[in-house]
């Protein structure tokens, strides 16, 4: 990443077609071994290869948070994550948040419904995964903290007040501090 490498130069070296690489991920509790091209993002892998389309592609540049998933328990933007770099990692998406039970709801999912914390719903899986990461981090204690620590998730419908209320309720329900 040295800046000087960014200078203009010949790109003639190493032009042979790079090989796909085999990786194993645990996705929502299930082990998956896949052969991936190095430039495949975790987001595209989840949606296009594993058919887990709950994770959304919004901006594809890490600015909107719609693609947020939990990677080894930490919230990340899957659009800026290369799948090859995460060999051996454990991924949880919105589909697996309630322990993989398709009929069950995570306390955050329940709270988002109760508080009407969305309008179009496109940002919601990212909001909920991000909120799950926030609660696990244990840093948010006030509504101000929640607003600041959720700023990586944009809601174009402007459901923010209800999103904050839903997270506060889920945080209490899960034994977290407000």
């Amino acid at each position: 990443m040295g800046s000087s490498i960014g200078a203009a130069g010949s790109r003639s070296e190493s032009q042979a077609k790079p090989a796909a690489i085999s990786i194993t991920l645990t996705v929502n509790g299930e082990s998956r071994t896949l052969s991936v091209a190095p430039w495949t993002t975790l987001l595209d892998l989840l949606r296009d290869r594993l058919d887990l389309t709950g994770t959304k592609k919004g901006c594809d540049h890490g600015q909107c948070g719609a693609c947020t998933v939990l990677l080894d328990g930490r919230r990340v933007t899957s659009c800026l994550t290369l799948a090859v770099m995460k060999d051996g990692a454990e991924i949880v998406t919105i589909e697996g948040l309630a322990n993989g039970d398709a009929d069950a709801l995570h306390p955050l999912q329940k709270a988002f419904i109760e508080h009407d914390a969305f309008q179009c719903g496109y940002c919601t899986p990212g909001q909920i995964c991000s909120a799950a990461g926030l609660i696990a981090e244990g840093r948010a204690k006030t509504a101000d903290d929640i607003r600041e620590l959720m700023s990586g998730n944009i809601c174009r419908c402007g459901a923010y007040p209800n999103i904050v209320a839903a997270i506060q309720e889920a945080m209490d329900a899960m034994g977290g501090r407000r």
């Binding site: 990443m1 130069g9 010949s10 790109r11 070296e13 993002t41 800026l80 994550t81 290369l82």
Partner: peptide
């Protein structure tokens, strides 16, 4: 490889590559 780059977090590099 003079046209190689290191990658760690990738939050800026992947964005610039896109």
């Amino acid at each position: 490889d003079r046209n190689a780059k290191f990658i760690a977090g990738g939050t800026n590099l992947i964005d610039l590559m896109k």
